[in-house]
Simulated scan of single mutants.
Amino acid sequence: MSEVKLDAIDKKIIKILQENCKITNLDLSKRIGLSPAPTLERVKKLENQNVLSSYHAKVNNSSIGLSVQTYLLVDIAWHKENALDNFLKKIKSIDEVVECYIITGEADALMKIVCKDIPSYEELLFRTLSKIDEIERLKTLMTLSQVKDSKVLPFDYGSN
């Protein structure tokens, strides 16, 4: 996919919506200096170009009883036929795996796992993940606390 040409107004819209996607079109239009109709057209254009790909509510994990967050480094068993495709297919069906990346370096994949508690994580690890034939090795990185969680991408948005 090629890079989309963005003007100063597009950049303002992107930054504002990353900070608060619940902003009304009227408030957004006031902040960027356009009337509501062209503002809405701009947002729709950014959505159609896949610059704005989705809108989500950010849920506080612990407030709904999901207190354990880990990262798993995964070594894939490359000697198995279709190892990557089979691994990805199986991982996509596990709800506790909320993110998965193919990486370089110390491992082949990095997964973010969210669970209720340590016994739930242990059950997921030993009864589900360790049973996936395409996984050769798992290494858990347990999170202790979160020090930053920015949803605003490091991009030159221009001056405000």
Rank of each mutant, 00 (worst) to 15 (best):
V4C: 09
V4P: 07
K5M: 06
D7F: 14
A8I: 04
D10G: 04
K11M: 07
I14M: 13
I14A: 11
Q18H: 12
N20T: 06
N20S: 09
C21L: 10
K22M: 11
I23A: 09
T24N: 06
N25G: 08
L28C: 01
L28G: 01
K30P: 00
I32S: 03
I32W: 14
P36D: 11
T39N: 13
L40C: 05
R42M: 02
R42C: 00
R42T: 00
V43H: 12
K44V: 05
N50A: 05
V51Y: 15
S53R: 11
K58W: 14
V59S: 03
S62V: 04
I64A: 01
L66S: 01
S67T: 03
V68T: 04
L72W: 07
A77P: 02
W78V: 00
H79W: 11
H79C: 05
N86C: 08
K90G: 07
D95V: 11
V97K: 01
E99S: 07
Y101M: 06
T104F: 10
T104W: 11
L110P: 00
D117H: 05
Y121W: 12
L124C: 07
L125W: 15
L125S: 14
F126K: 04
E134Q: 06
E136L: 14
E136R: 12
R137E: 14
R137H: 14
L138A: 10
K139L: 10
T140G: 12
L141Y: 13
L141C: 10
L141P: 00
M142S: 08
M142Q: 08
L144S: 05
K148V: 13
D149L: 14
D156N: 09
Y157L: 05
Y157C: 02
G158Q: 04
N160Q: 07
N160G: 08
